[in-house]
């Protein structure tokens, strides 16, 4: 997938690059919610969305309506190749999974009860957890979390409120923004 020449060769190749990247990400993201983030992190970096900006974009994707992973895809496509890039990224991210969903929905009930599927999911969930942990660690590194006590304080407070109290992400992000204005 290291298609650097693509960007130099022409706009249609950039679009093809985007389409392939987000198609793979869509098909491999299983586990809902943030499961797409570790897969997107590396691709976003390849398209020039690095470190702090990636964190900013996750926050934006969280605060706008719609699934975080799809929103991140849209943003990345938009940044790389404008509105057309956004359309290609979103469509290739969502289209194949929707088609697969349709194909499977005919087998619907049988599929749901299948013990193999349950077991497969319980195994793959461990992979998703590991990938998400690596994404969080890479992001923490990128923003210098451990060398900034104010950031660490916000992180710990948000972790406690989000995990222990189950506070919704949007008020949490707003409060963290207010804390940023006060502390920095």
């Amino acid at each position: 997938m290291g298609n650097r020449e693509g960007r130099e060769a022409g706009a249609h190749l950039i679009l093809l690059d985007i389409a392939l990247a987000f198609l793979l990400i869509g098909l491999l993201s299983l586990g809902g919610g943030y499961a797409m983030i570790p897969l997107l992190q590396r691709e976003a970096a390849r398209f020039g969305i690095l470190g702090k900006e990636f964190c900013n974009v996750v926050a934006i994707a969280e605060m706008t309506p719609g699934p975080v992973g799809v929103n991140l895809s849209t943003y990345t496509g938009y940044k790389v190749a404008g509105v057309l890039g956004a359309i290609v990224a979103t469509a290739s991210n969502v289209g194949p999974t929707a088609a697969l969903m349709l194909a499977i929905s005919k087998l619907f009930y049988r599929f749901r009860a299948d013990a193999h599927v349950e077991r497969f999911l319980s195994g793959f969930r461990l992979v998703v957890i590991g990938l998400m942990a690596s994404a969080a660690i890479l992001m923490a590194e990128a923003i210098g979390l451990c060398s900034d006590y104010r950031a660490m304080a916000i992180f710990l407070a948000a972790l406690a409120l989000g995990y222990r109290r189950g506070i919704h992400p949007i008020p949490l992000i707003l409060a963290a923004g207010a804390a940023g204005l006060l502390l920095y």
Binding site: K52, M132, I143, I154, F155, A176, G177, G180, L183
Partner: peptide
């Protein structure tokens, strides 16, 4: 504001883990 938001985003993912 984003300087405050970024650590919270990492916390959201950590909480999800």
């Amino acid at each position: 504001a984003f300087q405050g938001i970024r650590p919270a985003v990492v916390a959201l993912i950590a909480a999800s883990v």
